[in-house]
Amino acid sequence: MDNVRGLVESVIFQSCLLLDEERFDDYIALWVPDGHYRITTWSPDLRRELVFLDLGLRDFQNLLEGVNNHQRMLGQFSRHVTGQLIDIDGKDQINVTSSLLVTHTDLEGISKLFAVGRYLDEIELVDGKPLIGSREVRLSTRQFGPGSHIPI
């Protein structure tokens, strides 16, 4: 079981590094084919749930493949996960909650906090290998400056 925990932690950490490095094909390879990605938050302005992105894996992949067509914030994002709660139900699905901080470093070398939230992941064991089945990025931050073409 400790081995599974280690593999789960590793796949989540890899997902951060690969997105940071914009290695989108390798990032998508961490997902199951029918994976699902969402970015959500609570709006105290509207007093309702907001969904900023809600994509099946194919649409998610299209979005990532289109990133280089756009004018974007210059610099690099860096995703930091800590404090994971790993709930292994004894079957093939593992629920993981991770605290998340995302920083942005501009070309002058100035780093600023971009977003605070959590990853709420469902990890599936496929032939003993953990893959991301779904990810909800649950954000506390609701202002992102110009915004980002790359998901969190």
């Binding site: 900023f52 992105l53 756009h70 004018q71 974007r72 914030m73 400056g145 915004g147 980002s148 073409h149």
Partner: peptide, 20 residues
Amino acid sequence: RKHHNQYWGPFGRNLSEDAI
């Protein structure tokens, strides 16, 4: 919501380019 976010959400394709 999907159509809205494709263009105009904070992680959409269009709005942030205007801001940049």
